[in-house]
Write a protein that binds this DNA or RNA. Structure first.
Lengths: 198, 198
DNA sequence: TTTTTCAGCAAACACTTGTACACTTAATTG
DNA sequence: CAATTAAGTGTACAAGTGTTTGCTGAAAAA
C-alpha cells in the first residue's frame, strides 16, 4: 500500500497504476501481489479505508479545538490543511477517485463523505446551540463547508507555502460567509422577510 | 474525440484510456491516430478545450437569464444542471482531470476555472450594484459558488432524476446562503461589528 | 492535368500487462 | 517436533501497449 501511494504521488493516477508497477516499487515479485489482494480494485478500497480513517482523525482534531474556544474557523482550517499536507498522497487519492474510474470505489467515497457531513452537521448544531444562535438546516451547511474545504484544500495542498496560506485565508473567509448567511437566513425566516427570493 | 468521450463515459477514466482503444472505437487503424494527434495528452487537451467552450456557454446562458429577472439563483442552477446533463461525459472529463494524471492538463483546467471565477465575479458585482447591495470581495464569492456548483453539480449529473432535483435544491440553497452571508458581512464591516471573529 | 496534401492502411517492433503454476522458505500452531 | 499456513520466487503465456515505416487512394491545389 505504501508503494502504491508513493507511485501515485509521483506519476499520479490510481487507474493508470499497474499491478507490476506496484510490486516493483514494493520490491516483490508480481505474483506476490496476490498474497495480499486479489485485485487492484481491492488495493484501491484498502487505500480508501485508510483515507477514511485519516478524515475521521481530522474531525477529532477539530472537535478538540472546539472545546478550547479560540477562533474556531481559522484554526480548524489550519488543522485541516496540516492534515492534507501530512498525508497528501492519501487525500489526493480520495479526491481523485471520488470522480474516478471504479464505480465501487466512487460510491464508497461518496458514502464516506456523506457520513462525514452528518457528523460535521452535528458539531455545527451543538456549537450553534451553545452560542444561542439559530441556524437553517445544519446538514446543508455541513455539505457546503466540507465540499469547499475538501476540494479547495486538497487542490492547494501541494502548492508552495505562500499560496497555501492564501488558500487557507480564502477558505476561512468562505466558511465565515456561510455561517453568516445561515444565520441571516434563519433570522429572516423567523421574521418572514425573504428579500433574496424576490 | 467523440470516440474517446464515448469510451470514457463507459469504462471511465482518461488516463486509463489507451490509444488503441480510441482508434478501435473510432473505427480506424491505430497508426491513423497520429494523423490527428501526436499524443494521447494532446487529445486530452483538445477535449479540455471543448469543455472550456461548454463552460463559457453556461455562463452566457446564465447572463441571458439575468437580464430576464425572475429567480436568478434557481434558474441559473437549473441551466447549469441542464448543461451538465447535456454533455455529461465532457464535464466529467473536466472534473476528473482537474485532479488528474497529467500536470499539463491539470494546470490548464485550473487556469480555466480561475478565469471563469473572474467572469462570474464581474457578473455578481454588476448585479449587486444594480440592486444597490454591498458585498465583500466578489471574487471570493465567485470561487465559493463555482466550486460548489462544479463539484456537487457534476457529481450528481448522472444520478436518477429525483436525486438530481434534490441536488438542485441544495445547490440553490447553498448559493443563497453565500449571498446572504456576503451581504451580512459587508454590512457588519460597515458597522465594524464582527461577531463571528470573537 | 499534374502535383501535392491528406487520411487511412497492414505489418512489424519492442515492451508491458495481468494472471497461472509449481516451487521454496520462514513463521505459527498443534 | 511435526504440520500447517503465510509470504515470496521464477518462469511462462497470451494479450495488449505505443510507435515506426512504407505504402495506397482520394481529394484539393497548382
Amino acid at each position: 500500500m505504501a508503494a502504491a501511494l508513493k507511485k501515485m504521488s509521483e506519476d499520479k493516477g490510481f487507474s493508470s497504476l499497474g499491478l507490476r508497477e506496484v510490486t516493483k516499487e514494493a520490491g516483490i515479485a508480481p505474483a506476490s501481489f496476490y498474497r495480499h489482494f486479489s485485485n487492484m480494485e481491492e488495493l484501491g478500497l484498502a487505500l480508501v479505508s485508510e483515507a477514511e480513517d485519516a478524515l475521521q482523525a481530522i474531525l477529532l482534531d477539530a472537535k478538540a479545538l472546539e472545546e478550547k474556544g479560540e477562533d474556531i474557523v481559522a484554526s480548524s482550517v489550519q488543522v485541516c490543511m496540516q492534515h492534507f499536507r501530512d498525508n497528501g498522497p492519501l487525500f489526493r487519492v480520495l479526491a481523485r477517485e471520488a470522480t474516478g474510474n471504479s464505480p465501487l470505489i466512487r460510491r464508497r467515497i461518496q458514502r464516506c463523505l456523506m457520513n462525514l457531513n452528518h457528523q460535521l452537521a452535528e458539531i455545527i448544531e451543538l456549537e450553534m446551540r451553545r452560542r444561542h444562535r439559530k441556524i437553517t438546516n445544519p446538514l446543508y451547511i455541513a455539505e457546503a463547508i466540507s465540499t469547499l474545504v475538501f476540494n479547495l484544500g486538497i487542490a492547494s495542498a501541494d502548492l508552495p507555502y505562500a499560496k497555501q496560506k492564501e488558500a487557507e485565508k480564502r477558505l476561512a473567509h468562505h466558511i465565515r460567509i456561510i455561517y453568516w448567511g445561515a444565520e441571516a437566513m434563519a433570522n429572516s425566516q423567523h421574521l418572514s422577510r425573504n428579500i433574496m427570493l424576490s
